[in-house]
């Protein structure tokens, strides 16, 4: 029999409140280690690739100018000293100035971040709101021709390379049909001080092609995940029992099946959202979308180390935040996780 205090403990709210601080502190400590290690890797990596001064400085400059520039960028010191200086400044919140633009790297990235986030959100939204219904359909009627068509389509979405699909989208919708613009972000509107595209029709038109391109792989993934989950859930006794209670099939599928299969889907959506942000690079390059992905490609070309390091640190931090959010949502969806957290 449950002890009397279970009545209070098993409410989701209290369990979260009790278990979160320890959990979050543990997570943060792990995260700091990961960030340090990663910045070191990038430092050594960029150093090994080449000397940014060769690329950045006018070839006509004389030796004195070059010496001065190297000293100004702090590149005259040995690598380990450069890294320690970087760590010291990073602790104070300064990730260095971009070699190429001579403005703080953080500021450069944050300026580009809304564009990437908007693209990533649009793509993930498309993947979720199309993927779950399509996956449910394919799972409920696996032998119908729409079900088979959905699955065949998802195989294509999986296997066609993103850059090729992007080029085909541009050829078809921008060049041949002329329906949608092929590059850039279009006019932006300010929303709470952040420039966004989706508030104007012209902005939405610019968003459609890159978001579709980026969403295609995730869409296929969510379709397959939802279908597999649905097929498995339909065989469970609780579904048969729900039908035996006389529930409508809408309720059986929409509540009993969906709530169970959402657990793995939420996990994957979270993880994939991080990778959508991080790997929007290809799509941003093809559609000349002015986001972080395009910035990092340009920065790698000129070996702009502060920007590369700052970008990767931000991406890693984003991943950590997203994973944390996924864990919290996960425990809200699955009551069994909540109890084990409270006990453990």
């Amino acid at each position: 029999m449950a002890p009397p205090y279970m009545g209070i403990l098993h409410s989701a709210f209290w369990t979260l409140i009790f278990s979160m601080p320890v959990f979050i502190v543990r997570r943060l400590m792990q995260s700091v280690l990961v960030l340090c290690f990663m910045s070191l890797l990038v430092f050594v990596g960029v150093y090994a690739i080449g000397n940014p001064v060769d690329i950045l400085i006018n070839p006509q400059a004389d030796q004195a100018d070059i010496e001065r520039a190297i000293a100004a960028l702090g590149l005259d010191k040995p690598l380990w000293q450069q890294y320690l200086i970087f760590l010291k400044q990073a602790l104070a919140g300064d990730l260095g100035k971009s070699f190429a633009y001579n403005i703080p790297a953080i500021q450069l990235i944050l300026e580009r971040m809304p564009a990437t986030l908007e693209l990533a959100l649009a793509a993930t939204g498309m993947a979720v709101f199309l993927g779950i219904p399509l996956g449910l359909w394919a799972g409920l009627k696996p032998d119908s021709w729409p079900g088979k068509l959905i699955m065949t389509g998802s195989i294509l979405g999986f296997s066609l390379p993103t850059f090729w699909v992007g080029l085909m989208l541009i050829m078809l919708f921008a060049v041949e049909l002329g329906w949608l613009p092929s590059n850039g972000r279009g006019p932006t509107t300010e929303l709470l001080g952040i420039p966004v595209s989706f508030l104007s029709w012209e902005g939405v038109r610019h968003l459609i092609l890159p978001a579709t391109n980026l969403a295609l792989f995730k869409l296929s993934l969510i379709i397959r995940l939802t279908r597999a989950g649905t097929r498995e859930a339909l065989l469970q006794d609780y579904v048969k029992f729900a039908r035996a209670k006389g529930l409508s099939s809408t309720r059986v599928v929409g509540v009993h099946v969906l709530k169970n299969i959402m657990i793995p889907i939420v996990t994957v959506i979270g993880l994939e959202f991080g990778s959508v942000i991080a790997f929007a690079i290809v799509t941003e390059s093809i559609f000349a979308w002015p986001g972080m992905g395009k910035l990092i490609i340009d920065s790698i070309n000129v070996l702009d180390r502060p920007v590369i390091v700052a970008y990767l640190l931000i991406i890693v931090s984003l991943f950590i935040l997203i994973n944390l959010a996924v864990d919290i949502v996960y425990s809200l969806l699955d009551p069994r996780v909540r109890i084990s957290e409270a006990k453990g």
Partner: peptide, 13 residues
């Protein structure tokens, strides 16, 4: 049904 562990939906109160 036979198995009470399986007949109730685990994620619904």
């Amino acid at each position: 049904f036979q198995d009470p562990m399986m007949t109730l939906n685990p994620v619904l109160r």
